[in-house]
Structures are given as structure tokens and as C-alpha cells.
Amino acid sequence: MNPIKFLEPTNFTEAISLLDQHADDAKIIAGGVSVTLMLQQKLIAPSALISLGHISNYAFIRHEKDGLHIGALTKLRDIERSDVVKKFCPALAYTFSVVANVRVRNQATIGGNLSAADYAADPPAMLTALDARVQVQGAEKNREIHLSEFFLGFYTTALEPNEILTEVIIPTLPSSASAAYHKYTSISAEGRPCVAVGAVADFDNDRKCSDLRIAVGAAVETPQRVRDAETLAHGSTLTDELVAAIADEYSLRLDPLTDVRGSAWYRKEMIRVFVKRALEEVRCDR
């Protein structure tokens, strides 16, 4: 068996040309959490690992005019602790603070976390609710993908084999908006989420909801929004009745999966509970 080459490009262009050279046979490694796991469990046997560890300038968090920009190589722990993120959206910092454990957060990058497309993860639901998009660099061109179109299925994204996620952009929230993230662990507190709910709501001067986005993750293959349920809120005060109606609609419309953390039946119930609780939190904020 040939040893696996460990390649260390110093920029994304070089990384992509290395990907092209190795066709389907190379694997990108950023923080290393998921790639090392797959290597150790012999789920992958690439001819080369293309490490992004020597690419500088992509571990950044910047609040720009159009929103928050986070470089793909930023560690989850740095996002969690960033004052810029906390100021931009406390719920986003909180979301990153509840991912796995402190060791994983010290190691894992936001680009790696999203590209792994693990359904039982925390950031995808919150970022989807925040209407985030990702910058992607390819051999020929760069493109932007809305997170709502990024996750295609279990461990599958819209990235082409020779594309790399380079940056995440989260549009600035109006000052009248608020966000919440609810992670529900059903077994051990230390487990992965059974249900993840990210919610963002904006309110007009009469405390009526002008915009609402709720994304449910971990219970479904990819983060899901139910637009019909969201629009129920538009122009209305988030009363208990309305909150319950939206939560019911989410529960009814989503088709959750079954795993060791809960059956589809239970997850439908928990989607109702945690959509409700997330809405109560964003409502309460105002």
C-alpha cells in the first residue's frame, strides 16, 4: 500500500489545482476532525491529503457592511469566543459554543464543519436561519451558494469535487431583529443534537413580526425551513396562539428521521416544542 501523500498548499488556488491533479482521489483536510476519523475507521483511502493548514489569511472574523464574514479556516472555538460575533448575533456565538466539546471546537473549522454536512450538527440550522451563504472557489470560477442550497443530503453538499468553501457570509440583521438557537439533546447532555432549531425574527415598531426564518436541523437530513409556516407570522404579533400554530405547522410539515437519539414520532414532537421555545425566546427579546 502506498503511503498517503500529505500536501500543504499555501493558497486555495494551489489547493484546487492539487485537487484537480488527484481527481477524485484526494481529500481536503482542514481542522482534521472528520477526515482523521474517516481515515482511522478506514472509511476513506485517499492517495493524498490536501491540508489547508498552511493557507494564511482565511482564519478571520470581520463585520463588514453587508454582514459578518468568517474565513473558512476559522476555528469554531474562535467564533464562539469572538466579541465581534457576540455583538453581531449572540445566538450565533452560542450556537458555536455548544458544538461537541471544547477539544473539537479548538480543532474544527467552520469550513470543515459545513463541508462535512453531518446532519447531527449545530451550526447548519442556525446559519440557515440567518440566511448565510458561502463563498466557494473552483478551478475556473468562484461562486456563492446560499446555505439553503448548499446541503443536499447526508454528508453531501453542492460543492463540486474540485471546489473548496472559503468563506461564510452572514447578512447583517436589522437592529430590530433577534435570533435564538435551541439544541436539544435527548440522551446524554454531551450527545449530539436530537433536534436543532435556529430562529430569526424581525419586528416592526408595533412589535409585529415583519420577517421570520426558522430552520430545523439534526432531526432531518438537511436543515429545513417551512415557508408557509414562517409567513403565518408576517404582520402579526407573536401571540401564544400564533407561536403554537407555527410550531404545529413545522411539526406537521417536516418528515424527521429515526436514529438512536429519537424516533421520527418523537422528533416531530420535539420540533414542535423547540420551534415554540425558539419563538418564545425571540419574542421575549423584544
Binding site: 440522551i187 446524554s188 447532555a189 454531551e190 450527545g191 436514529d259 438512536v260
Partner: peptide
Amino acid sequence: DYSIPSIRD
């Protein structure tokens, strides 16, 4: 996937 008690449990 097989959880054992953590310090938070």
C-alpha cells in the same frame, strides 16, 4: 451513539 454519563449528566 452509545452514551455514558458525562459531568453534565
